[in-house]
Simulated assay, not measured.
Amino acid sequence: MAKTINVLQNSPHTILAVLGGCIGVLICLIYTFLPTALHLNLFVMITVILVVNGWLLGLIIRRLFINGYRDTLTGLGNKNMFYNTLKNEMTRTRSKDLCLAMLDLDNFKQINDTFGHIAGDTVLKKLAEILKQNTRGTDSVVRWGGEEFAIVMPHTSMQGAYALLERIRTIIESYDFGPQINSRQITFSSGVVSYINLSKVMQTKTNELNPLDLFVNLADKAMYRAKASKNTVVRWNEEYCA
């Protein structure tokens, strides 16, 4: 699926070339083998068919894109979109003004076990809404998988990213998820790392991971540090997140 989407995204000219070739062949056949009186009628009919097929092709491409880059439960981007976005931002950034945060809901298994998976899905969807409502349009919020989420924050300092996550953390811990679920407080733990942190690690240490995966790995380490206390945001630091 991912390969198909990649071809469709990177080679739209190929699709147009094929369609154009088909139209050309059909027109040649019409004018070569059919009586002149039928040329116009058949030409109009074939044009209508091609327009309808083009519309259907557009719907198919859009559906492939949605399925390949969107999480069906929350409507957020998924891991495919995450890696695509992070790679582009890492290529773009000049002043190192890029931060990455990984978030994990605390004790989410207990929510599923106590209230059921429908209630758990409700929490995930509500959390997705809160994350989208409290981040900028330039930020990319994705569901990493399970109860984990990620936020790619371009044009953001470590201080700015930390302040944003702290604000979201306080919103979540006091949010009313419903009369049944609210009997158990919902919180999350988060780790945040900057592109500056990544650059320093790459300069001072030998790593087997590529820069993209290393960036995620550093954010993960900060998040695991946060989960030791729960309901906490931890900024990556070489001393205790190594």
Rank of each mutant, 00 (worst) to 15 (best):
I49M: 05
S140Q: 03
L105V: 14
T138K: 02
S95I: 09
T122V: 13
L34F: 15
D121L: 01
G137T: 11
L212T: 05
H39C: 09
T122D: 15
S190H: 08
Y69N: 12
K230H: 00
A219C: 04
H155D: 14
G120E: 11
N231G: 10
L214F: 02
V123A: 06
T93I: 12
P179K: 02
P154K: 02
R225H: 10
T232E: 03
Y224E: 00
L98S: 06
K227T: 02
C22S: 14
Y240C: 07
T93C: 08
I118E: 15
F188K: 01
R70K: 13
L76M: 03
A163V: 04
Y162R: 07
S157P: 14
T4D: 13
C99L: 07
V141C: 01
D71E: 12
S157Q: 06
M90S: 07
T74D: 03
F215N: 01
N88L: 03
A242N: 10
L8A: 14
V48N: 15
M202D: 02
Q203P: 01
N10G: 12
Y224K: 04
R62L: 15
N207S: 09
G75C: 08
K96H: 09
A242V: 01
R92T: 13
Y175H: 15
A163C: 11
A163H: 14
P12W: 05
Q133F: 07
C99T: 11
Q203E: 10
K96F: 12
S157G: 04
A150Y: 00
I118V: 15
I172D: 02
T85G: 03
E166V: 09
V216D: 00
I171R: 03
I27R: 00
N84Q: 13
D106A: 06
F43G: 14
T135H: 02
D97G: 09
L19P: 11
T135L: 06
F82G: 02
R63I: 10
F43C: 13
V152L: 00
M153A: 07
I151M: 09
K230M: 01
T114D: 11
I15N: 13
A226M: 00
T36A: 09
V141A: 01
G145Y: 04
N210D: 15
E173R: 09
I30H: 07
N134S: 04
G191D: 04
L16P: 12
K205V: 06
S157I: 06
Y31S: 08
V201S: 06
I60A: 10
A226N: 00
P12R: 00
Q180I: 13
R184N: 12
Q110L: 05
T32N: 13
I49G: 13
K227F: 01
Q203H: 05
S95K: 12
D71R: 05
L131R: 02
K96I: 08
I61V: 14
D104N: 14
N210M: 05
W236K: 00
I130C: 03
M153H: 07
L105C: 13
L198W: 02
L34A: 11
